[in-house]
Amino acid sequence: MAEREVLIDVNNLKKHFKVGRGQTLKAVDGVTFHIYKGETLGLVGESGCGKTTCGKTVMGLYQATDGEVLLDGVNIHKLDKKSKKKFTRRAQIIFQDPYSSLNPRMTVEDIIGEGIDIHGLYKGEERKAKVYEMLELVGLNKEHALRFPHEFSGGQRQRIGIARALAIEPEFIVCDEPISALDVSIQAQVVNLLIELQKKKNLTYLFIAHDLSMVKHISDRVAVMYLGHIVEFANSHELYENPRHPYTKALMSAIPIPDPEEEKRKKRIPLEGEIPSPINPKPGCRFVARCQYATELCKKETPKLREIREEHFTACHRVEEIEKSNTIEVL
């Protein structure tokens, strides 16, 4: 089997924010992963876990506090202005909110054409033709080009956002919760559009979301994030069929099942206790306050992400013990 080509390599990435005297909010605190060319990596977790901050730091919208994001072996946080512009030609972002991410004073043609103008790709009739091509690619038509964002529905606005990202023909796209602000009836349409575009354009995605069902549908591999740390990382099928970290198990148990009878029989794992603050976090596992298996070791030492099965990584001191017995002594 041929070795897959890594497009994005993230090593010990940190993004901290100063929020007061002597206080630091550690939104992303030592995250490591890589994304293969042509794949979709899902990044999931509860609201406030740091996944959006991680995506924006990977894109270079936030300057990293520490660590590196490599594209073709070059750290994007060390680029000069000219090189940074070249990077933005190769990497784009689709924002969460299709209402606030589009300039209300610009026509759709100018919104989609903005990147084309910045990079000097097309002019005149060629530019217009490219805008029309992008509109048709995302399921709209050229008559929409002269309209303004307020004239469209949420799903249509997100399609415009996707067209804007694709207009300069990038290789890598960060999809920052691109469906969370949309009606449920529209979400599947947008996800299926992203899958279709990936096949057509050989795109690579970092897909950030908290909807676990949708992440399973679109992702090749999935990373689970909790308070700035990645706690589990595996192939999508493997993670959903065999979650190993206590936090991942709880998340998976909350996914609704279409069959009402099976839903009744399903055992849910409740998460009790308050979510700790990411401001000046204490040593040890970030999940310790909500974990029924926590020991003194968990309170003192942060578990490292380690391979427990082939291509399946978990950050938990007791993962092997938990698998062996469901009656572990809880301290």
Rank of each mutant, 00 (worst) to 15 (best):
L271G: 05
F148D: 05
N202P: 00
N326Y: 02
R268Y: 04
V19L: 03
T40C: 13
E301M: 02
E262G: 06
R318F: 15
G50L: 03
E261K: 12
T295N: 05
L239Y: 08
Y132L: 04
K266P: 01
L297I: 14
T57V: 01
P243R: 12
H16W: 15
A254R: 05
K14R: 15
K84A: 11
F152A: 06
K86T: 01
I76D: 01
K266R: 15
L227C: 13
Q187I: 12
I35W: 10
C175P: 07
P283Q: 04
L71G: 04
R309P: 05
M1S: 14
F287H: 08
I118F: 02
Y293V: 03
I275D: 13
M59L: 15
L140A: 12
I173D: 07
K26S: 03
E68Q: 14
M134E: 10
E114P: 10
G154S: 06
E151G: 11
V190L: 05
F17T: 00
C49Q: 05
F87L: 14
I257G: 11
T65E: 02
L71W: 15
I195M: 15
C175I: 12
H144A: 13
G30E: 11
R309F: 11
I168L: 07
K81N: 14
K81Y: 09
Y99N: 11
Q292V: 12
V224L: 06
R127Y: 02
G124I: 02
P104V: 07
K78G: 00
A234Q: 02
K18N: 14
T65H: 13
R4E: 15
F87C: 00
H119N: 12
N280C: 03
G115V: 04
G45P: 03
Q292N: 13
V215D: 11
L102P: 09
F233Q: 03
P276V: 08
M214F: 08
K14C: 14
